[in-house]
């Protein structure tokens, strides 16, 4: 596999090459960005199986859209956007409907973390993860991108597809809800 020698090249060049049909260049990008994207999807969705599906679909979709990707954003930010989008769609589909949009349809239950996981990560960390499940999809996405991925408000705005001002509001509401949910653990 010639991908090895491509490793040192930067993302922008690899993305252009991949856009022109160079699968080896794309494979380097997948290896380079896959792990962090998988972690993002796990944090957003809570479950590893769904997360893996979401990231795989996002990457295949990126491959298809690469010919139009003209480096207006860094490849990494672009992937953050695609993965976030996909995860938001998953979350919205399973989220209990708010009264405003209530056209009754049963919502899927929040996934429960496995007992092994709880034991291995510690109860407080587990509790934080549970509390995340109580946030709206956008709040959750904004907060996770900020706190776990250190993205700027502008980058989060691009990833989530809302204005930086709206990001600010959602992060605030997320912190507000999480401090309350975690009050018992202090």
């Amino acid at each position: 596999m010639s991908g090895h020698s491509l490793d040192r090249h930067d993302d922008a060049l690899l993305a252009v090459r991949a856009g022109e049909g160079d699968e080896d260049a794309f494979e380097v990008l997948v290896r380079r960005h896959g792990p962090v994207l998988l972690r993002l999807a796990e944090q957003l969705l809570g479950g590893p199986a769904e997360a893996e599906d979401a990231v795989q679909e996002a990457l295949v979709s990126a491959w298809r859209r690469l010919p139009e990707f003209r480096g207006e954003a860094a490849f990494g930010s672009w992937m953050y956007r695609i993965v976030t989008n996909r995860c938001l769609n998953v979350l919205r589909a399973r989220r209990p409907l708010t009264p405003l949009e209530a056209v009754a349809e049963p919502a899927a239950p929040e996934p429960q973390a496995s007992p092994e996981r709880a034991a291995e990560t510690g109860a407080a960390v587990h509790a934080l993860r549970d509390a995340l499940g109580g946030l709206s999809p956008e709040q959750r996405a904004c907060w996770v991108l900020r706190e776990f991925h250190d993205l700027s408000y502008e980058d989060i705005a691009r990833a989530v597809g809302i204005s930086p001002q709206a990001v600010r509001g959602r992060i605030f509401r997320a912190r507000r809800a999480l401090t309350e949910a975690m009050a018992a653990w202090r």
């Binding site: 494979e27 998988l38 291995e120 960390v125 934080l128 653990w185």
Partner: peptide
């Protein structure tokens, strides 16, 4: 206090065995 939970959560994630994406499925 919330930030403290985040720090611990990030540390526990970093320490957990890293789950690998199936590159071959994508490729």
């Amino acid at each position: 206090a919330l930030e403290e939970f985040v720090t611990r959560s990030r540390a526990s994630e970093a320490a957990a065995p890293r789950r690998e994406l199936s590159v071959s499925t994508v490729m």
